Deep mutational scan, measured.
Amino acid sequence: QNEKLANELKSLLDELNVNELATGSLNTYYKRTIKISGQKAMYALKSKDFKKMSEAKYQLQKIYNEIDEA
């Protein structure tokens, strides 16, 4: 289960640069939040902690959705 979550989180991290570029014309909230979420996700992957990875995955998905809707 950890392996599956780690792969999903890696996949979301692969999209980080594209989504970060998409924040160029948006409010600074999005820029700041996506950077923080990305850092948390990288830390969670290194720690291999299921709870941290779950939270990081949720945060990344949430900010990606917010950027898409903005």
Rank of each mutant, 00 (worst) to 15 (best):
Q1E: 14
Q1D: 14
Q1W: 11
Q1A: 13
N2Q: 13
K4V: 09
L5A: 02
L5E: 02
L5D: 00
A6E: 11
A6K: 06
A6D: 02
A6P: 03
A6Y: 15
A6T: 07
N7C: 14
N7H: 11
N7D: 10
N7I: 12
N7V: 09
L9G: 01
L9V: 03
L9H: 00
L9E: 00
K10Y: 05
K10I: 08
S11E: 11
L13H: 01
L13E: 01
L13D: 00
D14K: 10
D14A: 12
D14E: 11
E15Y: 14
L16C: 05
L16R: 03
V18W: 11
V18H: 11
V18G: 08
V18S: 11
N19A: 10
N19H: 15
E20K: 11
E20D: 07
E20H: 07
L21C: 10
L21K: 13
L21R: 08
A22T: 06
T23C: 10
G24H: 15
S25L: 09
S25H: 12
S25V: 10
L26P: 02
L26Y: 04
N27Y: 06
T28H: 13
T28A: 13
T28I: 13
T28Q: 12
Y29T: 03
Y29I: 04
K31F: 07
K31P: 02
K31S: 07
K31L: 07
R32A: 09
I34W: 03
I34V: 08
I34A: 02
I34T: 02
I34C: 05
K35S: 06
K35H: 08
K35D: 05
I36H: 07
I36S: 08
G38S: 12
G38F: 13
Q39T: 09
Q39A: 10
Q39V: 08
A41C: 04
A41K: 00
M42C: 09
M42Q: 09
M42P: 00
M42N: 04
Y43A: 15
Y43M: 13
Y43F: 11
A44P: 01
L45D: 01
K46W: 09
K46A: 14
K46D: 08
K46S: 07
K46I: 12
S47F: 06
S47Y: 05
S47N: 05
K48C: 11
K48G: 14
D49C: 06
D49L: 04
D49Q: 03
D49P: 02
F50S: 07
F50P: 13
F50I: 08
F50A: 07
F50K: 05
K51P: 03
K52Y: 05
K52T: 07
K52E: 11
M53R: 01
M53E: 01
M53G: 00
M53P: 00
S54K: 12
S54C: 13
E55Y: 08
E55I: 10
E55H: 08
A56Q: 00
A56I: 03
K57Y: 14
K57R: 07
K57M: 12
K57V: 13
Y58E: 12
Q59S: 08
L60S: 00
L60N: 00
L60G: 00
Q61L: 11
K62W: 06
K62E: 05
I63S: 01
I63F: 02
I63T: 04
Y64M: 11
Y64L: 14
N65P: 01
N65L: 10
N65F: 09
E66N: 04
E66M: 12
E66L: 11
E66Q: 09
I67S: 02
I67Q: 03
I67K: 02
I67R: 02
D68S: 15
D68W: 15
D68K: 15
D68Y: 15
D68H: 15
E69C: 13
E69S: 10
E69G: 08
A70L: 08
A70R: 06
